[in-house]
């Protein structure tokens, strides 16, 4: 039996005229120990999806099953790493993680809790910053605290909502590696949401693109059959990698183009002759996107 199942899940926001359907007919099944990545454009409803799986939001239609039981609220079984870290700024690194440990294991003795908390802070290499507050940490360090907090609760499944998208490329690389290392150690089921195809290929067993919203739904799955451990630099010469990457990007780009053509029919623009600088700008923007997806 699959660990996590989504059947025809739909979700929208707003009422009447202002209602937008964000997600439509999402079907998904995840096996235990699997690392799945969902890639999509910003604004396609990725965060909404992860909020529903974690139990922070409930779907308008369809059902979400975790171990065969419907998800009705948050649970310690599903740990979440939020996009914007969501650390509590009045607590130190230690206290932020300890808060989670206290909640998860209220019956443990003080010493056991302490050891457990320190173990996970050590795991993300933050022991030197134990008593610092989030404001004193860099973005990458904050995200590591967030990862430690989620892992310290020993969730059966780790949900990561664009955990690395706000970080610079270098920090991103090291954190990707750290997350993979931790995942390989205890093979927890992990769901990663990202806007970076390379990140998905590097980390996941399977990639599923999310089409652009509104009415976003999951596209076809792409299996990543590249041996682990995967090395970022070696990956660049890997034929399998190149092929998968191109396939996914092609799929996403086609979808993007589709949306664009749809959109031009919706808006009637005033009849202005576009001037040259604007054109080059738009072109550059497209190139930017190419690099990202």
């Amino acid at each position: 039996m699959a660990l996590l199942e989504l059947h025809n899940v739909s979700k929208g926001f707003g009422e009447g005229k202002y209602r937008t359907e964000v997600l439509k007919n999402i079907n998904l099944s995840m096996e235990e120990g699997e690392f799945l990545a969902i890639v999509g454009f910003t604004g396609s409803g990725k965060t909404t999806l992860i909020k529903m799986i974690s139990g922070l939001l409930s779907p308008d239609e369809g059902e979400i099953l975790f171990r065969g039981n419907p998800v009705t609220g948050t649970s310690h079984e599903r740990g979440v790493v939020f996009q914007n870290y969501s650390l509590l700024p009045w607590f130190t690194v230690y206290e932020n993680v300890a808060l989670a440990v206290n909640e998860r294991y209220p019956d443990w003795t003080k010493e056991t809790k302490d050891i457990h908390t320190r173990k996970y802070i050590e795991m993300v290499n933050l022991t030197p910053a134990l008593n610092k507050r989030p404001a004193e940490l860099s973005g990458g360090m904050r995200q590591r605290v967030s990862v430690a907090r989620a892992l310290a609760m020993n969730p059966e499944m780790l949900l990561m909502d664009e955990p690395l998208s706000a970080l610079d490329a270098l920090t991103r690389g090291t954190l990707q590696q750290e997350i993979i290392n931790i995942w390989t150690k205890d093979k927890r089921t992990a769901l990663l949401i990202t806007n970076d195809v390379d990140e998905g290929i590097l980390m996941a067993d399977r990639i599923i693109p999310l089409t652009t919203g509104p009415n976003a739904t999951l596209g076809p799955e792409f299996r990543i059959d590249i041996e682990r451990p995967r090395d970022k630099t070696e990956l660049n010469d890997n034929e399998e990698y190149k092929k998968t990457r191109n396939d996914i990007i092609e799929y996403l780009m086609d979808m993007g183009a589709e949306v664009k053509t749809k959109k031009t029919t919706n808006y009637r623009l005033p009849e202005l002759k576009p001037i040259m600088p604007g054109k080059t700008f738009r072109k550059r923007k497209e190139e930017d996107k190419l690099k990202y997806f």
């Binding site: 974690s54 922070l56 948050t74 969501s86 509590l88 808060l99 609760m153």
Partner: peptide
């Protein structure tokens, strides 16, 4: 809302 979400996820 982020802090409230944390509270929910940690089930405080």
């Amino acid at each position: 809302e982020d802090y409230i979400n944390v509270a929910k996820v940690l089930q405080l």
